[in-house]
Design a protein around this nucleic acid. Structure first.
Length: 218
DNA sequence: ATCCCGAGGG
DNA sequence: CCCTCTGGAT
């Protein structure tokens, strides 16, 4: 299945430059409620100006707001990256911690963001459980999403190679290119044969949500 | 109108 | 549980 996704989303590899933990962390934080295209457009200038936690912690708020403007929520995001950088400097010696417990204690970092950093920057078990993945999970009827261990087990069964870095990005691209919120491209979906919502099941995302008994992934 | 690689606060 | 933060693409 890893191979199928790699062939289906060849461009996902090009987007993979999240081995720098700080960049990975900041990019994920500012990605909230925004599209990856705008994040990718804004990121080079952001990290050219402020490549480290120390530099970003000392950045003028006005300049950050200008850089983050096109993303939306720019005041909240400026606040987030400033507080995040300051916490990294003050509490973690300017380094991004590689443990889930430490990551979620950082201001503005929740479980989704922490898992992205673990999976992408550190190569540890941690998948990108974003809204894209939420749709996929609902379609597959995974109702234990709130238990991250269950989610990881389910995904590991689907992707036995467990290349967490590529998996995270393939799931993102799968959400972007196939498993849309509205009008999903089920006909071109590489997971169609495995998806309970394909064919007999409802393909409309609103109908598919009725399949679950609990909330989506946290 | 709806949604996007969410988190914090009430 | 609810709400707010925000702008651009479709």
């Amino acid at each position: 299945m890893d191979r199928i996704l790699a062939e289906t989303y060849p461009d996902a590899a090009a987007e993979l430059d999240f081995t720098n933990p700080f960049e990975c962390l900041v990019v994920t934080v500012i990605s909230a409620q925004t599209t990856d295209r705008r994040v990718n457009a804004a990121s080079p200038a952001l990290f050219a100006a402020y490549p480290t936690p120390e530099a970003m912690a000392a950045a003028p708020r006005e300049h950050l707001e200008q850089l983050l403007g096109p993303l939306g929520f720019f005041r909240a995001k400026t606040d987030s990256v400033l507080k995040l950088s300051q916490a990294l400097v003050e509490d973690h010696d300017g380094e991004v911690p590689a443990r889930l417990d430490d990551l979620v204690k950082l201001p503005g970092v929740g479980r989704k963001t922490a898992n992205v950093v673990l999976g992408n920057a550190f190569g540890l078990p941690g998948i990108t459980v974003d809204t894209h993945f939420g749709r996929l999970a609902r379609r597959f009827g995974w109702t234990e999403e709130t238990d991250p261990v269950k989610v990881e087990l389910a995904v590991a069964a689907l992707f036995p190679k467990r290349d967490w870095t590529m998996l995270s990005h393939h799931l993102i691209w799968h959400g972007r290119r196939r498993c849309h919120a509205k009008k999903p491209a089920c006909g071109a979906c590489p997971l169609a044969k495995l998806c309970p919502s394909f064919g007999a099941g409802p393909t409309d995302p609103i109908e598919a949500e009725k399949l679950v008994t609990t909330q989506g992934p946290a």
